Amino acid sequence: MSKEKKIPRFHLAFPVKELKDTLIFYRDVLGCETGRSSDKWIDFNFFGHQVVAHVSPDDAGKSAKNEVDGHEVPAKHFGVILEWDEWHKLVERLIEHNTEFVIAPYIRFEGEPGEQATMFFLDPSGNALEFKAFRDESQIFAV
């Protein structure tokens, strides 16, 4: 009987313009639970990882873009790789909340190594998020 290796959780701190809309978006739209907070930051349980939104209006939402698969991808972004069905449920949830997509949900690299479902959208501070899923998780690092 083999024991599956547990993947370490990551911690990410990122800048936001203000906390009220950030709280509503991450808690109510994405479904993240909140943790500790102050008037300058909020901890979120971001799909099992700890992300912290820090008030820093001058730093929020700035990113260059790079062309990938015919789309302008924000160079600075973060997100998670979800199970295939969970990704589709999140797409539905985002649509229900009238989320504007930077790159609408689609299948990238279709029929090629690394085929994945992906989408990009912005939080209220303009920070880019990418959520993706693989039918075959062995393709995550495929070349």
Results as ranks from 00 to 15, higher is better:
residue 2 S to C: 08
residue 2 S to P: 12
residue 5 K to W: 03
residue 6 K to A: 15
residue 7 I to V: 15
residue 9 R to N: 14
residue 9 R to Y: 06
residue 9 R to K: 14
residue 10 F to D: 03
residue 11 H to W: 07
residue 13 A to P: 02
residue 14 F to E: 05
residue 16 V to T: 09
residue 18 E to D: 14
residue 25 F to S: 06
residue 26 Y to K: 06
residue 27 R to V: 08
residue 27 R to A: 14
residue 28 D to H: 10
residue 29 V to Q: 01
residue 31 G to Q: 06
residue 33 E to Y: 11
residue 34 T to R: 11
residue 35 G to Y: 07
residue 37 S to P: 00
residue 37 S to R: 13
residue 38 S to G: 13
residue 42 I to C: 06
residue 47 F to A: 06
residue 49 H to D: 10
residue 54 H to R: 10
residue 63 S to C: 09
residue 69 D to I: 06
residue 73 V to F: 05
residue 74 P to E: 07
residue 77 H to T: 12
residue 78 F to T: 10
residue 82 L to D: 00
residue 82 L to E: 03
residue 84 W to K: 08
residue 86 E to Q: 13
residue 87 W to C: 08
residue 88 H to P: 00
residue 88 H to S: 11
residue 89 K to E: 15
residue 90 L to S: 02
residue 90 L to M: 13
residue 95 I to L: 05
residue 96 E to Q: 13
residue 96 E to N: 13
residue 99 T to N: 03
residue 99 T to Y: 01
residue 99 T to H: 00
residue 101 F to T: 08
residue 101 F to R: 03
residue 101 F to Q: 02
residue 103 I to C: 07
residue 103 I to V: 15
residue 103 I to E: 05
residue 103 I to P: 05
residue 109 F to S: 01
residue 111 G to Y: 04
residue 112 E to G: 01
residue 113 P to C: 04
residue 113 P to I: 04
residue 114 G to W: 05
residue 116 Q to A: 10
residue 118 T to E: 05
residue 126 G to V: 05
residue 126 G to T: 07
residue 128 A to Q: 00
residue 129 L to H: 08
residue 130 E to K: 01
residue 130 E to L: 04
residue 131 F to M: 11
residue 131 F to Q: 00
residue 133 A to F: 03
residue 134 F to V: 04
residue 135 R to V: 08
residue 136 D to W: 06
residue 137 E to M: 07
residue 138 S to A: 11
residue 143 V to T: 12
